[in-house]
Simulated scan of single mutants.
Amino acid sequence: MADPSVETIAGGRCLVARVSGEMDYVSEPVFRPQFKELIARSDRFIVLNLSGVSFCDSAGLSMLLGVWRQAAAGGAVVVLACGPGPVRGILEMTGVNQLLRVFDTVADAKAVFGG
């Protein structure tokens, strides 16, 4: 099991963050400050690459919604990139994909923001 982490890659007009590990109540104290830092250093567009997330429960969904709300309050846009799998399934089952835009790949998400 991978340790929870957020690795950022600045690319063009987007800040891409690769999220890895399990997003649950155990990892919440690790992820929350990292997400807060992401928002603080971001320009306008943040892509959260969830392809490295192996599990996501209600605490993980709460974190994603929190990032989205905090970013929006500061005038930034957060979108998700993740291929098919358990995380996409939970996003669809809970309706979170109706609030946050979900793309299949980081490239697809970056294309929307002009690179």
Rank of each mutant, 00 (worst) to 15 (best):
80 L>A: 14
108 D>Y: 03
53 V>F: 02
88 R>D: 02
29 P>Y: 12
17 A>V: 00
4 P>T: 08
47 V>K: 02
94 T>L: 08
22 E>M: 07
45 F>M: 04
115 G>I: 09
6 V>R: 02
30 V>G: 05
103 F>Q: 05
12 G>V: 08
83 G>Y: 02
21 G>A: 04
25 Y>I: 15
46 I>L: 13
17 A>T: 01
112 V>H: 05
89 G>C: 09
65 L>V: 11
26 V>I: 12
30 V>Q: 08
24 D>F: 10
28 E>F: 09
82 C>N: 12
98 Q>P: 04
45 F>P: 00
76 A>L: 15
100 L>K: 10
58 S>Q: 03
53 V>G: 04
52 G>D: 00
31 F>S: 05
114 G>V: 04
25 Y>L: 12
101 R>I: 12
95 G>V: 11
44 R>Y: 11
86 P>E: 09
20 S>C: 15
78 V>E: 06
18 R>L: 13
19 V>S: 05
102 V>G: 14
81 A>S: 15
68 W>N: 12
100 L>M: 15
50 L>C: 09
115 G>W: 13
33 P>E: 08
56 C>P: 00
53 V>S: 00
113 F>C: 07
58 S>E: 06
67 V>R: 01
57 D>Y: 03
32 R>F: 01
51 S>H: 06
76 A>H: 13
78 V>G: 06
1 M>H: 11
16 V>D: 02
102 V>P: 11
90 I>H: 10
115 G>T: 11
70 Q>W: 07
51 S>F: 02
66 G>T: 04
82 C>S: 11
42 S>A: 15
28 E>P: 00
34 Q>T: 04
50 L>R: 14
27 S>G: 04
108 D>P: 04
99 L>M: 15
65 L>G: 03
54 S>K: 11
28 E>S: 14
88 R>P: 00
65 L>F: 07
13 R>D: 13
53 V>W: 01
97 N>Q: 12
106 V>L: 00
100 L>Y: 13
82 C>T: 15
89 G>T: 13
49 N>Q: 07
93 M>S: 13
96 V>F: 08
65 L>D: 00
114 G>L: 06
25 Y>M: 10
51 S>E: 11
105 T>A: 06
48 L>Y: 07
16 V>C: 05
76 A>R: 15
96 V>M: 15
64 L>T: 03
94 T>K: 08
109 A>M: 06
15 L>K: 03
27 S>W: 01
51 S>I: 03
82 C>P: 00
15 L>T: 14
3 D>F: 11
112 V>K: 05
84 P>T: 10
92 E>T: 15
31 F>C: 02
27 S>M: 03
15 L>E: 06
22 E>D: 11
74 G>A: 14
35 F>T: 08
17 A>I: 02
60 G>T: 08
72 A>C: 04
41 R>H: 10
89 G>Y: 10
33 P>L: 04
88 R>Q: 14
81 A>T: 07
101 R>W: 11
114 G>K: 03
90 I>Y: 09
97 N>H: 15
69 R>E: 12
82 C>K: 05
17 A>R: 01
109 A>T: 02
47 V>S: 07
84 P>V: 13
54 S>V: 15
98 Q>E: 14
47 V>G: 07
52 G>L: 00
